[in-house]
Simulated assay, not measured.
Amino acid sequence: MRKVEVKPYNECWNSMFEVEANLLYKIFGSEIIDIHHIGSTSVKGLKAKPIIDIMPVVTDVNKVDEFNISMMAIGYVPKGENGIDQRRYFQKGRDHRTHHLHFYQFDNHNINRHLAFRDYLISHRDVAKKYGDVKEGLSKRFPYDIESYIKGKEQLVLEIELKANA
C-alpha cells in the first residue's frame, strides 16, 4: 500500500522533469509538440507529493499507444485513458511512484486547464502556501487513504481552477 506523503519543495524536481522530458523527446520524436512540467512539483516553494507530473502535448493522442513497449522499457506502466477521455496516462515507480505522464492532443481543453492552475499558483504565493498546507494536513490525516486525501483537497482545487481560468 502506497503512503501519501507531502514533502517540502525540492530543487531537484525541475531537473527530474528535464531528464524525463529528454527521454520522451527521444522516444516520441516529432509526435511531441511540447512538454510541460505541471502539478505541485512544478511550483517553486510548494509542498508536494514527490511525484513529477509531466504533460506531453502530441499531434495525435491515439498514436501514443504505439509507443507503449518503448515506454515500458524505461519503467513506465501504460494506463490508457485512466478515466479521462482523450488522455494517455503512464505511471513510473510502481508503489514508490516517481513520475506521472498525462499525454494530450494539442487541441485538448485539459492542456489549458493544467497550465492555468500551475501558473496561478506560481503567481499567487499565498494561495500556493494554503494549498500546500491543506495537502500536508490531509497527508498526515490520511497517510494510507489516497481517495480521502484527494477528496479532502477537491473543493480547494475547484476554487483555484475557477480563479485560474477566469
Rank of each mutant, 00 (worst) to 15 (best):
M1C: 07
K3N: 05
K3V: 07
V4E: 09
V4K: 05
E5Q: 13
V6G: 04
K7M: 05
P8N: 03
Y9M: 06
Y9Q: 06
Y9L: 04
E11S: 14
E11W: 06
C12E: 15
C12H: 15
W13N: 11
N14F: 09
S15A: 03
M16I: 12
F17C: 13
E18I: 14
E18H: 07
E18N: 08
V19I: 14
E20V: 02
E20K: 03
A21F: 02
A21D: 05
N22I: 10
N22A: 05
L24E: 09
Y25A: 06
Y25Q: 09
K26R: 14
F28Y: 07
S30Q: 12
S30K: 13
E31K: 00
E31D: 06
I32W: 01
I33R: 10
D34V: 05
D34W: 08
I35Y: 04
H37Q: 08
I38P: 13
G39D: 08
S42L: 04
S42W: 07
V43F: 01
K44F: 03
L46K: 09
K47F: 10
I52H: 05
I52D: 08
D53P: 15
D53L: 08
I54Q: 09
I54C: 04
I54G: 06
M55V: 11
D60E: 13
D60L: 13
D60H: 12
D60Y: 10
V61T: 10
V61D: 04
V61A: 08
N62V: 04
N62W: 10
V64Y: 02
F67R: 11
F67M: 11
S70G: 05
S70C: 13
M72H: 02
M72D: 07
A73Q: 14
A73H: 03
G75E: 04
Y76T: 07
Y76S: 05
V77G: 01
P78Y: 02
P78F: 03
K79A: 10
K79P: 07
G80V: 05
G80H: 06
E81K: 10
N82G: 02
G83K: 10
D85S: 11
Q86E: 14
Y89S: 08
Y89G: 13
K92E: 09
K92M: 12
K92A: 04
K92C: 12
G93C: 01
R94G: 01
R94I: 00
H96E: 11
R97L: 03
R97N: 12
T98G: 00
H99Y: 07
F103R: 02
Q105N: 11
F106V: 08
D107M: 00
D107T: 01
D107W: 01
N108W: 10
H109R: 06
H109Q: 05
I111Q: 01
I111E: 03
N112R: 13
R113G: 08
H114N: 12
D119W: 03
R125I: 13
D126W: 01
D126E: 13
D126S: 11
V127W: 05
K129T: 04
K129N: 07
K130Y: 02
K130F: 00
K130A: 06
G132Q: 00
E136W: 15
L138H: 15
L138R: 15
S139Y: 14
S139G: 15
S139L: 13
K140T: 15
K140E: 12
R141H: 12
D145L: 00
I146P: 08
S148N: 11
S148T: 05
Y149H: 10
I150E: 01
K151G: 00
K153H: 08
K153L: 03
L156M: 06
E161M: 09
K163R: 14
N165F: 10
A166L: 15
